[in-house]
């Protein structure tokens, strides 16, 4: 009975979630872009000449129907990977994206082995 109730709630929960559609969010994109002429600020947080220009361009591209990824790719092509706060997954950034999960898994394995050794004794 109880499990049924839980399953019911979970399904209810996700139905609500699925009902929301997500559009391309300009603010999210702007927050993921580095303001190249500022000290460690995102484009969204800056009001510099450069940031103002990027804001206009990003909004234009969204209106043109470009996807988030296309916008990032366009800017990376023009300014290099330095401009995005989320490094794209490629040869250079491979270690950055993979290593944390590797560490997580190996940590789990170490703990597991630890306990197993004990159970055998």
């Amino acid at each position: 009975m109880k499990t049924k109730v839980i399953i019911f709630f979970i399904i209810l929960n996700f139905n609500v979630v699925n009902a929301i559609t997500f559009s391309v969010d300009s603010n999210k994109i702007l927050k993921n872009l580095r303001c190249l002429i500022c000290q460690g600020q995102s484009v969204a947080d800056s009001n510099s000449e450069f940031a103002q220009t990027i804001k206009i361009v990003v909004k234009d591209q969204i209106n043109d129907g470009k996807s988030e990824k296309e916008i990032y790719d366009f800017l990376i092509e023009k300014y290099g990977e330095w401009i995005v706060y989320k490094p794209p997954l490629n040869k250079v950034n491979f270690v950055l994206w993979i290593f944390p999960y590797l560490a997580l898994i190996s940590g789990g394995v170490i703990i597991f082995l630890f306990l197993k050794k004990r159970d055998n004794h």
Binding site: K31, R34, Y85, P87, V92, Y101
Partner: peptide, 15 residues
């Protein structure tokens, strides 16, 4: 690699 990258909030949030 002589490559300049930025690692910022979206990376940490995702991982």
């Amino acid at each position: 690699t002589d490559h300049k990258v930025s690692v910022g909030p979206p990376f940490y949030n995702t991982v």
